[in-house]
Write a protein that binds this DNA or RNA. Structure first.
Lengths: 283, 283
DNA sequence: GCTATTCTGAAATCTCAGTTACACAACGAG
DNA sequence: CTCGTTGTGTAACTGAGATTTCAGAATAGC
């Protein structure tokens, strides 16, 4: 089989590699192909052209530019590749352990992978479960707060939790907001607070205030532990080391999603029911 | 598509079910097909006939006996089926022998690791660089927008970018906000829009409006590509498959941080200087 | 702002894959 | 042994789909 030009093992790789050497319309074809890979390329030229919103000749030019003698040859390459991949279904991921080229992308990816691995490794599972239980308790009010950057993650948590249960609110950075939150808190309140270095006094003061009112404080923080850990009931540390000048909240984001998944699983039907209710009333 | 007869979801099942109702030569075809499923059926009638050591008409008679209107219809069914199986790559993992009562934590962690690896593997590096260049251009105004959930990530991007360069603003979901953003847009505007399934019309309309004003549209989306891809200059797809009922934005978050890292590296001293300036004036 | 180059799609063309028709071969029944 | 039925391949046909051509559109360069 000399169908595959340049000895490339993967058409997908070939696609991404040549993406910037293609014309605009040809790039559209590449994207359409990558969006539904590889099935989009297994039908006809017309179908692929339609999916990419271009004309059939563009598709033909596209495959020839990739180095194939024509569309049929291109299809044979796809099928050939499919043969290899389907043979070992799990091969797709562990392959070479990720991207291969140098650059920011690779660097950051590797940092993320290592960070995630280490974070989950070190995470005390018992704490995670405690937190899940707290978030699932319908008798408790949940308040969530974050800092300048971690606020994005905390609001993300709220966005999901609200769909699964009642009584979830975000406490913004606003001073008045925070003071009213403290005033409204009681022993049935759960505070989830995201605090990563550099730790801000404001967050500490706020958490302290909530704890003083009897609230159960759950802390999402980094390895070095925010001072809030002193009076937190649950502490979930994640790594934030990064290749860039900024700390990374990818692990925090991941843990947040893990929490949501755990809550969803724990609530089961009840959660699903509420979710459907919210969705359909929204239109 | 009414290509699949009898409501069978799987052609493979159909094959094994009808094996003994076929003639000798037809059974050969079925065997050849099962031996290399489904790729043997994705080429041509002649190829399949050759592989099965029968004549082309026998292959045609074979597929019609299965209930298909012809060979093309049969192929469409195969492709359709392939779409479903390959569509959710993470579905393959839960079958990892034994009950997956392993725990939510490890389950989600594995999903994240796989998702990240695949996402970065598939990411076109050239697109990433194009986007970096755009974000580093001091002559351009940057606008960032997101959806209900992705809004958290988009605001996260803004939080970082603002520290590195001027002219970066978030466009909220508010209608008036978006309309003014469109009015203010020009050919020197860069729009970074986060749009993950399920894609909202509002985001498409907004992006379209910005594009019409000459803005350069950069799209952060999932594998299935938001319709915005049609008129986007740069498209960065990331996987969103998750173990929970919700899609995951961990990969999106990671890519966002990669972008920030790339921009920081590209800007170099200029970025650092601005960063220090912002920090110290803040107190 | 103009020219040169590249890009792109509509229409015409041509090739070949899928299909059909028919004749021969195999097998079983009487 | 002969007839009828079923299965199978050869060869001719048909139409769908891949390809080529060419003119208009977009883009880059000066």
């Amino acid at each position: 089989m000399t169908d595959i030009p340049g000895g490339h093992a993967s058409v997908r790789k070939l696609l991404t590699a040549m993406l910037n050497e293609l014309s605009n319309s040809e790039r559209k074809v590449a994207r359409a192909l990558l969006a539904q890979y590889p099935t989009a390329g297994l039908t006809t030229v017309v179908d692929l052209a339609t999916a990419a919103s271009v004309s059939p000749p563009t598709v033909v030019r596209f495959v020839t530019r990739l180095g194939f003698s024509g569309f049929p040859a291109f299809q044979r390459a796809l099928v050939h590749e499919l043969n290899g991949e389907l043979g070992s279904p799990l091969k797709q991921y562990p392959e070479k352990g990720g991207p291969s080229k140098e650059g920011v992308l690779t660097e950051t990816y590797q940092a993320f992978a290592a960070m995630l691995s280490a974070s989950y490794e070190e995470l005390p599972e018992s704490e995670f479960h405690k937190m899940t239980k707290l978030l699932c308790d319908p008798g408790r009010e949940v308040r969530v707060a974050g800092g300048r950057f971690s606020g994005s993650v905390s609001s993300y948590l709220v966005g999901h939790l609200r769909l699964l249960r009642a009584g979830v609110h975000h406490v913004d950075g606003d001073d008045l907001d925070r003071r009213t939150a403290i005033a409204d808190a009681s022993s049935s309140t759960v505070l989830v607070i995201y605090d990563y270095r550099r730790y801000t006094d404001r967050s500490v003061v706020f958490a302290e205030g909530m704890a003083a009112r009897g609230a159960t404080v759950c802390l999402m923080t980094d390895n070095w532990l925010s001072p809030i850990a002193k009076f937190a009931k649950v502490v979930l540390p994640m790594r934030v080391d990064s290749a860039s000048p900024f700390d990374s909240l990818v692990a925090s984001m991941a843990l947040t999603e893990s929490l949501v998944a755990a809550v969803a699983a724990e609530l089961g039907d009840a959660g699903v029911k509420r979710l459907e209710l919210v969705e359909e009333s929204g239109g």
